[in-house]
Design a binder for these strands. Structure first.
Lengths: 176, 176
DNA sequence: GAACACATGTAAGAAGTTACATGATTAT
DNA sequence: ATAATCATGTAACTTCTTACATGTGTTC
């Protein structure tokens, strides 16, 4: 998902400033599946304003730069739809964790346990985060996505917990 | 995961040519979580050879460019270990599908069903692929990763199937 | 004989991150 | 007073993809 589509999508849920968009993708519900920096968000918004995909309303503030509140235009909505429906493709699970794990065997057996342990903690945190978000009233689709994320996290967590021993077998002191 | 680490990791499982590495990341088990093009793989291998992280053995062939078989050096193994254990971070599930779904509500209700349908088919394909790979004898960790992927796919699939109706409720013709 | 698999490599371009630049307000 | 939050923006850099360049062997 490129920055433009991401911004359009977020704006489709309501107007926002560049600063707010950034917060959503780094801390908010969006952090689950995306990331973006100021260096990409601001230029994208400027360009899309020029292209007529978003509208910009300036709010004056004392002692701060004008707050630029962006909202989706009809053209922007069309562009978003095109982006989302254009040849979806395989949607790979680009996960550093999976890759690291796959290669960890060749590196150091001790690390595997640590990696898995960290990942389980992360899953726990994300599960808590997602459950927190679910309390807020959200649109049907947003809820759906959060629950989907939750299901995946919980499945991953359970599997990791149940299968840890296979990777880092404890020294066989007490046998069955 | 950057290309260098990816190549080092793959070479940690056994020697390979650039061509073979590319096949692995596009078609093989690695396709589940990564992707890379010739334009990044070949320069990475050349550079890492200069850096002493990999060794290159040339195999002459008739009618074809020399086959360059790369293997990991001790330094390469160290570099790999550092990469994998250096500040793992949150490991976001950068998924276009999740993003698209989250924004789909604002675009067109009809699309949601299509998106989910496609995704379920994709999950089915990947589940079949992973189960196929599991038949081959693999290292413990490789098996673990494949099974982890399988668990996630199956959880996702089940959830999507069971909850589709919530997103695109059929016209209420026959009630109760 | 057309297309695909094998096999390597380069150059141009896209897309994004990091770090910088600015500056007031608020919390520790 | 030191750091964090609010608020926008630019320039340099990194990283990767796309498309090109080359050429044989094999399959349909």
């Amino acid at each position: 998902m490129d920055i433009r589509t991401l911004c359009l999508g977020i704006l489709s849920l309501g107007e926002a400033t560049g600063y707010e968009i950034r917060k959503m993708v780094t801390d908010g519900s969006f952090s689950f599946f995306s990331e973006a920096s100021y260096g990409s968000i601001y230029p994208a918004l400027t360009q899309m304003t020029a292209d007529g995909l978003v509208a910009c309303r300036a709010e004056s503030q004392t002692g701060r730069p004008d707050k630029k509140v962006y909202s989706l235009t009809a053209d922007g909505r069309k562009a978003l739809e095109q982006s989302l429906t254009a040849a979806p493709g395989p949607d790979r699970h680009r996960s550093d964790f999976l890759a690291a794990l796959l290669f960890a065997e060749a590196v150091s057996p001790d690390r595997i346990n640590a990696l898995i342990h960290d990942r389980i903690s992360e899953h726990d945190e994300q599960i808590a985060l997602l459950k927190g978000h679910l309390k807020d009233e959200q649109g049907t689709v947003a809820r759906f996505v959060l629950e989907y994320g939750l299901v995946m996290q919980e499945a991953a967590r359970r599997f990791l917990k149940e299968n840890r021993a296979r990777l880092s077998p404890a020294p066989e002191k007490q046998t069955g």
